[in-house]
Design a protein around this nucleic acid. Structure first.
Length: 884
RNA sequence: GGGCUCAUAGCUCAGUUGGUUAGAGCGUUGCGUUGACAUCGCAAAGGUCUGAGGUUCAAGUCCUCAUGGGCCCACCA
């Protein structure tokens, strides 16, 4: 069987094979089992339009590690998968497809367009799901949810109605971020500001009664002057005091506008006088409200000027800007133009510059919702890992603004608001019916002419319900009772505000309970230069390509091992070679064990076996190292330090199990106890590597003699400390210390066929027995301290020294080649360093501040350390003398 | 402007509550390897832990300031 194992691990064949088998045997499915403790994670639902990028790969690898770990630990685990309908993103994709056919969504009409989107989803919507499977994600696919599912939509409507009835949803006009390309409102979070080079235009507005006098205002968007309804100055500004209350004649338009005073105006900026366009700027809007100004909207939703812009009507906003400037110039009203860096909002989907735009939108009043959500984090009911994100969260929550939830697109949950044609036309505030189902008639006038609001809800208005709407809330389902609140949320820092904060609010509002206990925030995946990976920058490393080239396990290994405590991840392709090499190392070490394994020998229970027979030092040592690694891995996993857990595993497996243990046992590999220990340690190590690297561990697991079921169904190993006494470990360490000392002297270590460890010492040829005495003394001494029995032999004619430390045989031929002078220098510097350390330590121990105040154990530990260091110096002196 | 974060080997980064000689991977150089593995092994070179102060018996680690990156929020007429 073992002979079939090829020399190199081939991920391609094994990965798809095992994933299918896992799925077929329902190993991912979660059932309600009252005798088990539930552990649940809801996936951050990727967009249906999404294709797997490194961010997803990292995010989902982490979740899979947690789920697989907890599953093996005996929890009833559920990883709830699903996708998000991603309103604007999806609509854009389908519109692009339509554009190729030469038509627009308006040509199809709303219903047919939505049908097209559903068609698109049927066809392409599961791409991301297939890709998650390639990544090895052990989600319960039988529960796959979609935010536009019927049941899910019911929850969305329910929430809207409830909030409306609590007066936490209102309709208002407001300056919102408007994307003229997508033709929809965007929330503040969706309109990220970016700097760009623009200009500051200085416009001269003449006084109405004295056209020879001007007030100069500065603006970055001159076309909005068509909608100006005032000019504002600071009341303290001496330059303008005399003009306050006077009237200006707005050039080009001819409208008469007042000069008002407001302390908000910054006297330092521009000319100190600011044009006020209440319909086109958020600050101006506030000024307009405060001073009772007129709101004149001069722009159409598509970014072109409207009829109120008079002769500029129909021009695009940027064309209009040019035209306005030209006309102002010919009127002599353009004073100057200066370069100016402006920061403008950009649509997060299409990067069009957003326009501050006055329109009617629906809002959620967030302050009351935020209250319990703030408290939960402050009181530690919900914990962020790393905890610094809690500060970010709280900072935002405490300054939270109302949430604009309406979007002027077609794909999404349509707002459950109906307008009575009669009543609503008489008064905007009348005839508004908010209902779970379409009402038959207006309750007031009994008219049946009811029209549903054209807008849909913000995508996040559905995803904020994800932790419970996926369990068929508002029904009180058994799943909801068992799995809610969920255990851990794993996500990226970008969506703390979009999503995490809102889920916490929704959890308290609708379930009266937190949605999850822990929030693990991992870093953003960036390229080598620190830029975010994005398609437009062309710096993307495609995880699927990595999987094809190196395998999923390699991808997962490398991603996790460089993700330390939520720091951003800087990624280059070479990173994945380490993962591939490790996978191959696991493969070959296992191959070696399997080749040498006598299957009939390995069924013994470790505890029982060693009750009768004490394992030798190498076997004891590797067991000890294994359990200590196991403890560390568990501790790190429990505190979300995935990279540390993985790195411990890596160095245990490679540098202890392979480099030392497997080399040490080669001569005794047929021994029964070695067979048992070798097998058990490999077998247990595979289990704890499995959450990180699921495929290769399963492949090897299945080749182990007597392997039953999948490795997924195995238990996480227990600490079995009774096998190893601390004394045994200390002895083992001492033995290795000796060897390492020798290795420091450029010794080479190898196991010869008769089971001895040959050490070729790199010591100058003409070395006398006498000069080696201190080293021998040191070894003898160390052996004595550690209760190692030692038998020594020195054979002058062969120039060979032999020491037998208990079970370990050391033969040191006293010959070699080395630049003794160099070695001497180095040793001396080490001694110097150590001596200064010793002085410090002695000082410290003499200090009563330390010995008096520090706990006794620490003082004792320090004393031991001092002794150790002194021993170390003696050892080095010995080496030094040997070199002379 | 407010908040967060980072600066450690040529490169990318670890370094737990201060406490032995500051580590890993990659890269470089040398040596080695015919049966687990060249996707390997052994070793070497390479560090005033960004700078300046401070606390301490003891600082890469804590505090203050400075310098230089990155991120988030707010504002930007």
């Amino acid at each position: 069987m073992a002979d079939e194992l090829p020399k190199q691990y081939n991920p391609k064949e094994t990965e798809s094979k095992w994933y299918e088998i896992w799925e077929k045997n329902n190993l991912f499915s979660a059932r309600i089992s009252p005798d088990k403790i539930p552990y649940s994670i809801v996936i951050p639902p990727p967009n249906v339009t999404g294709i797997l990028h490194m961010g997803h790969a990292l995010n989902n690898s982490i979740q899979d590690i947690l789920i697989r770990y907890k599953r093996m630990k005996g929890f009833q685990t559920l990883w709830m998968p699903g996708t998000d309908h991603a309103g604007i993103a999806t609509q854009n994709v389908v519109e692009k497809a339509l554009a190729k056919e030469g038509c627009k969504r308006q040509d199809l009409g709303r219903d047919r367009f939505i049908a097209r989107v559903w068609e698109w989803r049927e066809q392409y919507g599961s791409t991301i799901i297939h890709q998650l499977k390639k990544l090895g994600c052990s989600c319960d696919w039988s529960r796959l949810r979609f935010t536009m599912d019927k049941d899910y939509s019911r929850a969305v409507v329910e929430v809207f109605v409830r909030l409306y009835e609590k007066k936490l949803i209102y309709r208002g006009s407001y300056i919102i971020n408007w994307c003229p390309r997508c033709q929809t409102a965007l929330s503040d979070e969706e309109a990220a500001h970016a700097e760009l080079q623009g200009h500051l235009y200085y416009l001269k507005y003449p006084l109405k009664d004295k056209p020879s006098e001007f007030i100069t205002v500065a603006t970055t968007r001159p076309e909005t002057m068509l909608g100006d309804t005032a000019v504002a100055v600071n009341p303290k500004d001496k330059r303008y005091k005399k003009y306050i209350g006077k009237v200006l004649a707005l050039p080009l338009v001819g409208r008469q506008i007042k000069i008002i005073a407001d302390p908000l105006v910054d006297m330092q900026f521009g000319t100190g006088a600011v044009k006020v366009t209440p319909a086109h700027d958020p600050n101006d809007y506030a000024l307009g409200k405060k001073h009772g100004l007129e709101f004149i909207n001069v722009m159409a939703p598509d970014g072109k000027m409207n009829a109120l812009a008079q002769k500029y009507a129909g021009l695009d906003r940027f064309r209009a800007r040019e035209a306005v400037l030209e006309d102002l110039k010919s009127l002599g009203c353009l004073e100057k133009i200066t370069p100016h860096t402006i920061s403008a909002g950009h649509c997060y989907r299409c990067h069009t510059i957003v326009e501050p735009y006055l329109s009617k939108q629906w809002f959620v009043k967030t302050k009351p919702l935020a209250k319990p959500a703030i408290e939960a984090v402050k009181k530690g009911k919900i914990k962020f890992y790393p905890d610094r994100w809690a500060k970010v969260y709280l900072n935002w929550m405490e300054n939270i603004q109302d949430w604009c939830i309406s979007r002027q697109i077609w794909w999404g949950h349509r707002i459950p608001v109906y307008y009575c044609k009669n009543c609503n036309s008489l008064n905007e505030k009348d005839g508004i019916i908010v209902s779970r189902t379409k009402p038959l008639e207006c309750p007031k006038c009994k008219s049946t002419e009811l029209i549903q609001d054209q807008d849909v809800l913000d995508t996040w208005f559905s995803s904020w319900l994800w932790p419970f709407a996926t369990f068929y809330w508002p029904d009180d389902s058994a799943d909801l009772k068992y799995f809610y609140p969920t255990s851990t949320l794993v996500t990226a820092p970008e969506i703390i505000f979009f999503w995490v904060a809102r889920m916490i609010m929704a959890g308290f509002e609708f379930k009266k309970q937190l949605p999850f206990k822990d929030v693990y925030i991992h870093g953003t995946v960036r390229d080598v230069e620190g830029k975010k990976m994005s398609k437009s920058l062309g710096n993307v490393i495609d995880p699927l390509e990595i999987i094809a080239e190196y395998g999923t396990d390699a991808l997962r290994f490398s991603l996790i091992s460089i993700t330390s405590a939520g720091q951003d991840v800087f990624l280059s392709k070479e990173r994945f070679e380490q993962g591939r090499n490790f996978a191959n190392k696991i493969w070959n070490a296992s191959r070696f064990v399997l080749i040498n394994l006598k299957p009939e020998e390995v069924n013994a229970d470790l505890c029982v076996f060693f009750k009768n027979q004490k394992p030798d030092i190498a076997n004891r040592w590797i067991l000890s190292r294994f359990y200590s690694t196991l403890g560390k891995v568990e501790k790190d996993l429990n505190s979300y330090k995935f990279n540390e857990a993985l790195n411990s595993l890596y160095s245990f497996f490679w540098h202890e199990f392979c480099d030392w243990y497997l080399e040490l046992i080669k001569p005794q590999i047929a021994q029964k106890q070695t067979q048992v220990v070798m097998y058990k340690v490999l077998e247990k190590t595979l289990r704890i590597i499995h959450p990180f690297m699921p495929f290769i561990t399963e492949e090897i697991w299945q080749r182990l003699p007597g392997a039953k079921d999948s490795i997924m169904q195995q238990k996480w190993p227990h600490q079995q400390l009774e096998l190893i006494s601390p004394k045994a470990e200390a002895q083992m360490q001492a033995a290795f210390d000796i060897i390492n000392t020798i290795r420091n002297m450029r010794a080479e270590l190898e196991v010869n066929p008769s089971g001895f460890i040959d050490i070729k010492l790199a010591i100058p040829d003409k070395v006398s027995e006498k000069s080696m005495q201190p080293l021998f003394d040191y070894i003898r001494n160390l052996a004595r301290i550690n209760n190692l029995s030692i038998v020594e032999k020195y054979i002058p004619q062969n120039n060979q020294y032999t020491a037998v430390l208990k079970d370990m045989h050391i033969i040191m031929p006293l010959s070699g080649l080395i630049d003794a002078a160099q070695q001497l220098k180095k040793t001396q510097s080490k001694i110097d360093k150590l001596q200064s350390e010793v002085r410090n330590k002695e000082l410290m121990l003499a200090n009563k501040n330390f010995t008096g105040r520090a706990p006794k154990e620490i003082v004792d530990a320090e004393k031991t350390k001092l002794t150790d260091m002194q021993t170390q110096i003696i050892k080095l002196e010995a080496i030094k003398n040997g070199l002379r």
